[in-house]
């Protein structure tokens, strides 16, 4: 396993946000995290990225408790993309992507050709090469999101944690981002709202409700009519897609 969570509990005040969650992400798989708003997806992702300490339970990276690993060592292998990260500094796109090299550089080391290669590759993969010298404030919402992905890729992660990365993206960029993530040789854990996209691209799905994981498994096992009614309160028909064989969800008007 690469990331493993054991009985995670996280509370804000008296309210339990993440309630006894255990999961395993296998190396190289793309793990989709579904659930309605407020079901605890973001908090769970933060715990998995080691940004918050669980009240009880633990997160392990290759068997080692993440709370005992130095922040820099975590950042050398785990990249995290927040939902609404923005800035008032007018950085260039390339400067934002270069931030991803931060954990790999010591305080004194200069900029190396490896760093350059990682940044150029990340810009290339996210279709931002032409925009590398544009300033942050001039980017559209979708370009900002892709710049964040490029920054995360420049981090050369083994594990990639993404919190609703397709928000604000048009459908072309939603699909290309998900395709890109699914083709990366990294373990990715991704919170998504679009169930059809999740079914198409993720190897496995987890479904959260009120802080608990209530279903886990392959998309065709998880995305059932009963579950959609129970968790999302929608009426829907689920059938295998004639185009990609993964489940496709038709919502009933």
């Amino acid at each position: 396993m690469s990331i493993r969570a054991e009985n995670l509990v996280w509370k804000v005040g008296a309210k339990t946000i993440v309630d006894d969650v255990s999961l395993i992400a296998k190396p190289g798989e793309m793990l989709g995290l579904l659930g309605p708003n407020g079901s605890g997806k973001t908090s769970l992702l933060r715990l998995l990225a080691g940004l918050k300490r669980p009240l009880s339970g633990q997160v392990t990276l290759d068997g080692q408790n993440i709370g005992r690993i130095r922040r820099r060592a975590i950042a050398q292998r785990v990249a995290f993309i927040e939902q609404h990260a923005t800035t008032n500094a007018n950085l260039k796109v390339v400067d934002v992507v270069k931030l991803g090299r931060f954990p790999h550089r010591s305080m004194f080391s200069g900029w190396t050709s490896d760093d350059d290669a990682a940044v150029n590759d990340a810009l290339d993969r996210t279709e931002l090469t032409a925009k590398r010298n544009d300033t942050w404030q001039s980017l559209s919402g979708g370009e900002k999101q892709r710049a964040h992905l490029a920054r995360a890729l420049a981090q050369s992660p083994k594990e990639l944690i993404l919190d609703e990365p397709t928000n604000h993206l048009d459908v072309h960029h939603q699909i290309s981002l998900l395709r890109l993530v699914s083709q990366l040789e990294v373990t990715s854990i991704i919170a998504l709202h679009d169930l059809n996209h999740a079914a198409m691209f993720c190897d496995r799905l987890l479904v959260m409700k009120s802080g608990k994981i209530i279903a886990a498994g392959a998309p065709e096992d998880v995305l059932t009519r009963e579950l959609l009614g129970d968790v999302f309160s929608v009426e829907a028909h689920v059938s295998p897609s004639p185009y990609h064989a993964r489940p496709h969800i038709h919502f009933v008007r």
Binding site: R46, A49, L51, R71, R72, A73, I74, A75, Q76, V78, A79, F80, E82, A85, T86, T87, A89, L91, D95, V96, L99, G100, F102, P103, R105, M107, Q155
Partner: peptide, 21 residues
């Protein structure tokens, strides 16, 4: 010495933390 660290704060505390600070 902290110049690069300050750059990494551009997107907030959480982003800085996820970059290893």
């Amino acid at each position: 010495f902290y110049a690069r660290v300050l750059d990494a704060f551009a997107f907030g505390d959480e982003a800085a933390s996820s970059l290893g600070i």
